[in-house]
Design a protein around this nucleic acid. Structure first.
Lengths: 184, 184
DNA sequence: GTCTATATAGGGATAGAC
DNA sequence: GTCTATCCCTATATAGAC
């Protein structure tokens, strides 16, 4: 095991936080998941678990932006956005770290990062709808409903261990949005 | 302060768990919220915090059933269901204890109660849609989307401290459902 | 840089006096 | 029934040897 690569370590941390949540991931599990002892971890992240989470959030937000937001900003293709969401969330195998963090007892300290995630996504979707000719109020409402629809679907999918729920939900939401767009 | 009434104690516990979540509510906060010392709490609930949560879940599920499910089963009025949801969730001031528990690190032990909540609600909504003439596949899809839409809205409302989000979300969902019904 | 041992705090649960 | 003191475990974080 060579010198620990920070990017790889953060990737492992991201996957762990995504699976167990911030409070749910203990230092023992963090150590096991990264293959690093406590000494190494606190050497790499002097501010401890909170710093690990911050860097994980930054990495995941970057991945989400590249996978979902940037393409949407490019062509405004809503159907493609849902496909990209499905891929980002691994056909329902992944969960939303941001939604989970909102409900985490210790999640308050990451509120800014959480809100930034949803604001960036919502802004891009609203703009795409406006560009497609949707009326402003409708666009705002639809994008808000889409974000919460995705988050809610991920929550229920976790509760019923039903990874297929994400595909079903995204399909329905895509149909609804596409219909509105075609009427505009 | 007279002899502690079990129903009142459970009501206070329910409110606390709803606000802080299961893992987020510590014994000190439980003691403060109920006005009962540890001795009294463990006398009333020999199995500790888990038992407190179970009885809280039962009480909240009962309230939800009476407020939302039973009326829906009675007349199949979907618009009334959304009004009842808005009232149950106190115009967005309350959160969903079930959604939160799904994502709680210690929530696994309550999975049966969580699933029962959503199954009961979904069953009643699907039946109402079927009775209104909606095709079976559409009814199943719409009820699933409604449940996840409500949960997602509650999550985002918490993340942005935006209690008005619930009203907006419920209005939009009601419009969508009502339109499908009117076309059936 | 990495290890182990330990500090420090908090969790839930318990025992025994009253 | 209720109280207080305490137990035990786990959590994160730290210190110091190597």
């Amino acid at each position: 095991m060579g010198k620990p690569n920070r990017v790889e370590v953060v990737a492992k941390l991201s996957a762990l936080f995504e699976k167990l949540g911030y409070t749910g991931a203990g230092m023992n599990e963090i150590s096991a998941a990264t293959g690093l002892g406590r000494g190494s971890l606190y050497h790499l992240f002097p501010d401890g678990k909170a710093q690990m989470m911050r860097e994980s959030l930054a990495a995941l937000q970057d991945e989400f932006s590249q996978s979902v937001v940037v393409p949407l900003q490019g062509d405004g293709d809503v159907t493609a956005m849902f496909e990209n969401l499905l891929h980002f969330y691994r056909e329902g195998e992944r969960g939303s770290i941001w939604g989970r963090l909102i409900l985490d007892p210790q999640g308050e300290q990451f509120k800014a990062e959480i809100q930034e995630h949803f604001n960036e996504w919502r802004g891009a979707l609203t703009k795409a709808l406006l560009d497609a000719g949707v009326e402003r109020g409708t666009a705002a409402s639809l994008s808000e409903r889409t974000l919460s629809g995705v988050e809610g679907t991920l929550v229920l999918a976790a509760g019923f261990e039903d990874s297929g729920a994400l595909l079903r939900g995204l399909r329905t939401m895509n149909s609804q949005l596409s219909e509105v767009i075609s009427q505009s």
